[in-house]
Amino acid sequence: MSEAPVSDQATHMSPDRSAMARLSGSITPGVTAGILVAVLMFMPYLLGGSWTFTLGLCFANSIGVLAVSLLVRYGGEVSIGHTFFTALGAYSVGVLDTRYGISLWASVPLALCLGVTLGLLFAWPSRNLHGIYLAVTTLALALAVPEMINNFDALTGGYEGLYVATPFIPGASMGLQRYYVALAMLVIVCFAVARLRLSRQGMALLLAKTHPAAADAFGTRRVWARISIMGISGGIGALCGATLAFSGSTVSPGGFTFWQAIFLLVGSVVSFYGLSLPRVLIGGAFVTLVPQLLSSSGAWIPVFYGLALLGMILLGHYMPRIRKAMARKSETA
């Protein structure tokens, strides 16, 4: 098996240097994110209720896309099973809400804990799997999800699903809450991920991804790296699910199918595995909007996803070459 990590393409095409740039004095990416957030804060007043709702879902899905991209960027691994974690988070919120009337105050931390724990639990038996082997294993994970949901129907409500109605802030408009909670979650997660880039753990993960032997020689064990990144990615995946549950108001098995897991990966590829707020928003918007826009002609959805996936991958492959060729041409000219 070749060692070339999947992110090579993406990393080399357009390095995600937001954290770096902030460090070196230039604050452009931070400002971009700030402006973006400011604009998004006002969106509900410009858009109708249904678009506000859709945007909330975009934010939630962006978190899921971020979870997948993070695994690629920091672990060099591809997951096609992140619905396992999103389902975990969504049902944490759904079950606590419908059974016990407990709102996000408690269910989001629970979702995070469960996501991290199960990420670690999955990482341990798969710690020696890499590349394609891990991808196939996550695929099996994704397939097991709907089955588990339907079999725990006493808790999960089976096919029917659950309806999340307890407000986060009692008294405030539910529609606006669903929007702003999602936005806040997305901003917080993006910020935390940007911090991770600067931490010793994050740097160790990056070194372990590109040069495991060097990381080893300086005190970062490979198994530690793998287990940590799966825990983090699982936790963020669960936060995505929790946000989806609250902003989308319903939790049902249809949201956590195998296809949904692939769509998250497609979203990640479409955003070129970016970790910055604008990038993950692109991925999240893709995952959310494509099925909505094509909802009248359902058969086109997989075709469109497939074409987008291929298009982005081929673009990632040919862009640097084209750019190089153009540079050469302009040099000779």
Binding site: V6, V78, G131, I262, V266, W300, P302, V303, G306
Partner: peptide, 27 residues
């Protein structure tokens, strides 16, 4: 061209073809 670059990227690409094949079947 992808196969010779990264096995994982080309594997993801096959997911794209899988999606297209499924969509075409539906259509």
């Amino acid at each position: 061209p992808l196969v010779f670059e990264s096995d994982l990227t080309s594997t993801i690409a096959t997911l794209g073809f899988g999606l297209i094949a499924q969509g075409v079947t539906l259509l």
